Computed example of a mutant assay.
Amino acid sequence: MFKKVLIAEDIDFNDIAVVHVLRELDVPEIEYAKYCDEALLKIKKAALDKRPYELLITDLSFKPDHRVNKLNSGEELIAAVKQLFPEMKVIAFSIEDKSYRIKSLFDISGVNGFVMKDRNSIPELKKAVQYVYNDGEKYLSQELQYIFQDKTINEIDNYDIQLIKYLSIGVAQENMEDTFKEAGITPNSKSTIEKRINKLKIYFGANNTVHLVSIAKDLGIV
């Protein structure tokens, strides 16, 4: 079993569940961080001291306060950790239930496991820790496996996401060409953008761009 684990979580109550699981698994060293920057510093220092953490269990959402941080979310922390220490195991432990966001944790952020905070959190997290340790494979609970089979989620690319994001913040379709050019996003011709938006509306069964954005938000795409 893992010998040294770091928990990144800003709510004490949630720490209790994680600690309970780790103690049941006889993990001897359990440490904590309430901020993402603090967690990354601890991980760097442990590596320098030749006593590295073997597992990071992190929430995704961290409530902002008076403290200024460079890393403000679990995704940002995971990305930074995986860039510096790709061999380190990471499990995301979150209330997140949006399909696309969960899938992107594996495809983009590189997590080794995801556990949703709910009534079955403790047994599910215990199973995830054991699985990641013993098999080294990615862990996602059975009821969430559909995420990897969902054709809708799998066929949306980064260009589509950027397009929907701009629509979601109020950029009108007729202004999208200029916005894409300023952002250096290609292709950025008016006809290409119009065709892509129409394709997305058909794909998601959206009546208009407002409906399209609403569906995308429900899926966690934006």
Rank of each mutant, 00 (worst) to 15 (best):
Q83F: 14
G170S: 05
P86T: 08
S109A: 15
I193N: 08
D135C: 12
F114E: 01
V5A: 04
K127R: 13
I78Y: 02
Y139Q: 03
N158S: 12
T58M: 11
N69W: 05
D118F: 06
D160S: 12
F85W: 06
L40W: 00
I57T: 06
E177I: 09
C36W: 02
K44E: 10
L6F: 01
R196I: 05
L25F: 03
H20Y: 11
K199N: 10
D218M: 14
A92K: 06
K103N: 09
G74R: 02
K3H: 11
V111L: 08
E143Q: 12
I95F: 14
G136M: 03
I30E: 00
E155V: 14
E174D: 10
K98I: 00
E54Q: 11
H20I: 15
I185N: 04
I197N: 02
H20R: 14
I147R: 04
Y100Q: 10
K45C: 02
L144T: 00
K117R: 15
K195N: 11
L25P: 05
P52H: 09
I30M: 02
A80D: 07
I57N: 04
F85S: 02
P123I: 14
G205C: 08
D26N: 13
L6G: 02
D26H: 11
T186K: 15
A8E: 06
I156H: 06
K190R: 15
R23D: 08
K70A: 07
P52Q: 08
P52I: 05
T58G: 07
A79I: 15
V68Y: 06
K165D: 02
F106H: 00
S189C: 04
F114I: 03
S141T: 06
P187N: 09
S191L: 14
G110C: 07
V5M: 07
K3G: 11
M176N: 03
L22N: 01
I43L: 07
L105E: 01
G220E: 10
R101L: 05
Y131K: 11
N154I: 10
I78R: 00
G205N: 06
I164A: 07
P86W: 13
Y35F: 10
T186W: 09
P52S: 09
M88W: 08
E31Q: 12
E9P: 06
K151I: 10
K50C: 07
L163V: 06
T58W: 06
I11P: 00
G113N: 01
K103S: 10
K117P: 09
I78C: 04
D178H: 08
Y159F: 14
R67G: 01
D135S: 14
A8C: 13
T152K: 13
L41A: 10
L60W: 01
N158P: 00
F93W: 13
G74T: 05
M116V: 12
D118C: 14
A39V: 05
E31P: 01
I202G: 02
Y139I: 11
I202R: 05
K82L: 14
D12K: 15
T186A: 13
I57D: 03
Y159N: 04
